[in-house]
């Protein structure tokens, strides 16, 4: 069993371990292959330039997935991702360094489930929060 986070051990304002990806076509093409998301702007610089962007850029749903991975990493194998809410405020280009972070904003018990709410975000190497949002995970208890 991998490291497991328990609900009782989480404290308010706690920062959770970050999740990092430096992205380029290796990430985007694999994402395209499992989602049939072969959009020219995500594969080809010329296609992106025709649409006013400086070069090919990554898929928004992949960033959405990275935030799920951030929360899964925190929740552990016996926890679960309950909610992810995001705004897509920026685009990520080749070799951008994306750091996914989260900070606990509250804990609650709802319908017998032990939940933790967090502010989450993806920030690039220029310090721009390109994907801010909120998340909720369910955690097991020690009891």
């Amino acid at each position: 069993m991998a490291d497991q986070t328990y609900w009782e051990d989480v404290s308010d304002r706690q920062e959770i371990p970050s999740f990092f990806r430096k992205t380029d076509l290796m990430n985007w093409n694999r994402w395209a292959s499992v989602n049939d998301e072969y959009v020219p702007m995500h594969m080809d610089d010329d296609a992106a330039k025709e649409n006013g962007q400086p070069g090919a850029f990554g898929q928004g749903p992949l960033r959405f997935s990275y935030l799920h991975s951030l929360l899964r990493q925190f929740a552990g194998d016996d926890g679960d991702v309950v909610l992810v809410r995001v705004q897509m405020r920026g685009i990520n280009f080749k070799n951008d360094e994306l750091t996914c972070t989260g900070k606990v904003t509250g804990k609650r018990v709802e319908d017998g489930r032990h939940l933790v709410d967090l502010d989450i975000a993806i920030t690039n190497q220029r310090g721009e929060a390109v994907t801010p949002g909120q998340g909720t995970v369910e955690l097991p208890t020690r009891g």
């Binding site: 928004g60 959405f64 309950v82 909610l83 992810v84 809410r85 995001v86 897509m88 949002g133």
Partner: peptide, 9 residues
């Protein structure tokens, strides 16, 4: 413009 998305699992 895409405003945002919320997935509840």
């Amino acid at each position: 413009l895409f405003g945002g998305t919320t997935a509840e699992h």
